[in-house]
Amino acid sequence: MTRGALNQSRTDAVGAPSATVGLVGACAAQVRRELAVARRRGGEWLNPLIFLALVTMLFPLGISPQPDLLATIAPGLLWVAALLAMLLSLDALFRSDHADGSLEQMMLAPQPLAALCLAKVAVHWLLTGVPLALFAPLLGVMLSLPTAGSLTLIASLLLGSATLSLIGAIGAALTVGLPRGGVLLSLLILPLYIPVLIFGAGAVQAAVQGGFAGPALALLGAMLALALVGAPFAIAGALRISIHG
């Protein structure tokens, strides 16, 4: 992706004078731009899926290919692998925008930065969390996860990965100015991911054992609601710090 193409996409998306663009219009433009950038990058959205498949493949080889054992550990294993795939994709969330100056343009925009960040994170979730959620049941079959758990796996990953995107974006925003933020990002973010992992894997476990996954899913939804309210402001604050100091 060249600088020229990116500038082009910016003009396409946010061509109108920004003073006349409302909040919804600006967010829609941000979403369109993110999607355009993602489309021009080609198959990059496939990388988390390939990562998920590779990590999942390691466990039967490393532990034991026995179906009984695999079925027991499958909910947690798929959730951990999906969480790590999300984490890996987060390092690049703001990095290229920081490098080419788009992030500064976002800050200069008259619309609140938090709203634009929310639009950006939403696209990240759409291109990472949603494919992971839809792809995970397929790997579940390979791990002989009982089919009773498949729908819950999709639902829990859809809800949970949105929270992971929001929390992770705070860490990505905090480390965007650092040359090697990758390892640090996992140190900052993984402790905060644990509650999501507990209830996400718990929901699937409950569904597999014939229980009721509702409470765990409700808690995942509650965490998402909380993150939706708080995280955009933390992301915007962290970005301001990373850019302006």
Binding site: L174, L184, L188, A234, G245
Partner: peptide, 21 residues
């Protein structure tokens, strides 16, 4: 994590704000 982030930024104002967040 807090100590490591502070270490990564060194002693400057930007790092201080990042750690505070």
């Amino acid at each position: 994590g807090v100590i490591a982030l502070r270490g990564a930024y060194g002693r400057n104002d930007q790092g201080a704000k990042a750690v505070a967040v």
